[in-house]
Amino acid sequence: MSGRRSRWRTILFVPVAIGAATWFVTQVPQDAGVDQPFEVEGAVGETVRLGYADLTVTDVRVAQRIDGEGVAQAGGVFVVVDAVWEAAARTLSIGGAELVDAEERTHAATDRSGCATATSAAPAYGQRITYCFDVAPDALEGAHVRLGRGGEGESGAFQRRDAVAVVDLGLDEAALDEAGAGEALRVEGPAPVVDARPGTEGDA
């Protein structure tokens, strides 16, 4: 009898232990440092050093229409962000790009009309990329981009404990005047540049 009781105790111990551990993990608040990315702030024209790569947002433009591989018309307005990536030590993929507005709404980049949502970067030379975000006009004011090598995934799953650049775009409603209904803004796909650093010859 005691052997059978001991076996039942063992069998019951497993689900009880799993349940208790699950309860404990969900109840104890996690330190944000456990799974949050390391944000490195910058501004347009500044080089942001992320450890694995340097990033320079070289220009920010606003347009109703863009023209790369055919003309694309914005549902809202296109925020066109030109950037240059230069890897620190080895070739790597750059897959994270989102625009966050002042209300914390997140916006994904589009690959319409030759715009890129991802690229690769290598050491020793810069890789130019143009990100395009089709956003509502009220998203311009106070908008910033979050650019990194990891994609956003689920709740930033691929950026956990990794560096991400947060670059304020310096946009306001006046930028809408620039968007206008004139000629479509020319955009080009990713390509290497001679030197990514601002102020140097061959600057992107």
């Binding site: 694309a72 018309q73 709404r105 980049a109 589009t110 509502a136």
Partner: peptide, 18 residues
Amino acid sequence: YNIADAGDLDVVNPGVTY
């Protein structure tokens, strides 16, 4: 198709109408 430009749509961001 996005009627405004006859192109494809990949993403629809918050507050944007197509």
